[in-house]
Design a binder for these strands. Sequence first.
DNA 1: ACAGTTTCTTGTCATTTGGCAAGTGGAATG
DNA 2: CATTCCACTTGCCAAATGACAAGAAACTGT
Lengths: 193, 193
Amino acid sequence: MMHDRLPLFLQSSGHVGQREAGEIATHFTRKEFAKHDFFLKEGRVSQGYLLLEEGAMRAFAYDTEGNEVTTGFFTKNQAVFEVSSFFNRVPSKENIQALSDCVGWCLTFEQLNHLFHTIPAFREFGRSVLVKGYAALKDRMLSTITETAEERYAHLLETKPELFHFAQLRHIASYLGITDSSLSRIRKEFLKK
Amino acid sequence: MMHDRLPLFLQSSGHVGQREAGEIATHFTRKEFAKHDFFLKEGRVSQGYLLLEEGAMRAFAYDTEGNEVTTGFFTKNQAVFEVSSFFNRVPSKENIQALSDCVGWCLTFEQLNHLFHTIPAFREFGRSVLVKGYAALKDRMLSTITETAEERYAHLLETKPELFHFAQLRHIASYLGITDSSLSRIRKEFLKK
DNA sequence: ACAGTTTCTTGTCATTTGGCAAGTGGAATG
DNA sequence: CATTCCACTTGCCAAATGACAAGAAACTGT
């Protein structure tokens, strides 16, 4: 069948049953992205809520000097969306770009709302996606305050090793809140151990 | 009437009409907190979703050396909840404590779910609360990466000056991701201007 | 009002990190 | 094959911040 992995993903949150997952899945549109394609561009209102089936993406913004700052990474079986632009229908301050060829399933804001108000289980699913992203960001925020750059690096290497296949080190550096030179030095120290 | 400001707050998100706001408000329970009372204690499952009408609260966790780290501040007309513990029904890693005497309106998880599934406008309200908190945290995360400690301090002073009435400087320091000594020096520099 | 505690400031010094520039290596291009 | 480009590394120095400790100021409870 065309949608085989999407229903499984919908069920994985624990809020959606098998029958409902099949029904919900029919409303999604398959999207493909070539490496470097943009899913969202700065200044535009986000048009999609994407469940990523294959590949990886990166969200980034610019600081006041015009340097790219990576604000997030997305890997397969994750929801990809810019919360403020998508839900509040306002222009995005961020870009989201494919780090590799990607495949995913997409909903517009209207489609998502329709499902949200129509299918209680999808409401729970949608809420759990939001809650999970929010909680993960809280953890990241706390770790940037309490941990050293080296600890944050080690932690990322442990928990998301696949990122190092997809992303450049300078992308990872700005995600960790350090310069690429510092990351390079940290990696050097790290090899000694 | 007993609930006078609560319906106004519910309406302020733009998703709840006047009639619905009154209906929704009847499900909330009034809660009072004395200064230093805990709304949530580390290790326990959060039992409440609070709309704060008066006063201020602080969320904090501990780093590996046992130092308090402020993870968030809440002031009046804000929703107060620990997203992970409240929505996932798991023990909290954070504490939430009143910085002053407080008054608010509270919902249990069951009550919130009931309203959520019963009243479409409340679904929108609940989602907008989550989205707003999530987006604010994204902004804070980006600013800790792109801005200097002094810029973050100046920004907080501009946007949330009332915090400086409620919170101690060391609470604000750890919220900004610096030590209290550093904050003290930054404030000294700041006075020169 | 007093003693005791906590918070805040300040000094000194060490450490981390950034800024900049040069150099290396690999991949892409013509 | 040579050239160019880009990512990454490295060295040097400056700036920001942390760690620790001492002292001043503010708050607390009796």
